[in-house]
């Protein structure tokens, strides 16, 4: 057996591809579900936290900063394990899917909050003053004047961070969430062949390349008219 056919046999064995294709597809669906749920919850929570922070209530802001710093400092895997194996001890039993979603959403929220906050801070004080002096209240000024400008600035860093955190759905494999990597490693141990892992890798590429391209599109789309 030549090196080439051995390579094919290890990573691209046809009957294994056929056998585990449905499982990988199932994993893709689960990954997409978690990813979408994480992105929506994480970005929304991050935005809400940034808006609350803009109210500049000292005690509340201190709490936000602590939350943000802790969740940015901890490796997501540590959080996943801590929550999954820790919570049952205090009587809270969450399904592994929920644990993964919760942890990644909170991590994304922490990063998103910082990014939105930086965006809000970058808008000149004069914009606030002009809007407030026409009688617009705090939330109206935020909604019509500050956020539309701030969000434009946040799209590039937010896109990058969102992609990075969404890829962490692969951590679900250690707590048995049936996402892509979990399906692939299970199949790999049953078949004693690396082909399912290669299928998983390809699935990630197929899944995330469009997201990366979309991110680039959003970056150029929103980069306009920065005065």
């Amino acid at each position: 057996m030549g090196a080439w056919s051995r390579f094919l046999d290890t990573f691209f064995k046809w009957e294994i591809i056929e056998r585990y294709f449905p499982a990988i597809i199932k994993g893709v669906v689960v990954t997409i579900e978690i990813a979408v749920a994480v992105v929506i919850a994480g970005i929304l929570l991050g935005l809400v936290l940034a808006i609350v922070r803009a109210l500049r209530l000292l005690a509340v802001n201190a709490l936000i900063v602590v939350f943000v710093d802790v969740f940015r400092a901890l490796p997501p895997l540590v959080l996943v394990l801590l929550v999954y194996f820790g919570l049952p001890n205090i009587g809270i039993n969450l399904p592994s899917f929920a644990v993964l979603w919760l942890v990644l959403a909170l991590v994304l929220a922490a990063f998103a909050e910082e990014i939105f906050w930086a965006g809000i801070l970058s808008i000149p004080k004069g914009q606030w003053e002009a809007a407030r002096s026409t009688g617009l209240n705090f939330l109206g000024t935020l909604a019509y004047i500050v956020l539309p400008q701030a969000i434009r600035l946040t799209v590039p860093p937010l896109t990058n961070r969102t992609i990075a955190i969404t890829k962490n759905t692969a951590l679900g494999t250690v707590i048995g969430v049936g996402e892509i990597l979990n399906q692939a490693t299970t199949a790999q141990s049953f078949s004693s062949n690396a082909t399912p892992l290669m299928m998983g890798a390809i699935a990630y590429v197929v899944l995330f390349i469009p997201v990366v391209v979309l991110g680039r599109f959003l970056e150029t789309r929103f980069a306009w008219r920065r005065i």
Binding site: G126, Q127, E129, A130, T134, R225
Partner: peptide, 15 residues
Amino acid sequence: RRQIGMVFQSFNLYP
């Protein structure tokens, strides 16, 4: 404030 018009040195228009 809507009864008090304010004009700033740096215009502060919404870009």
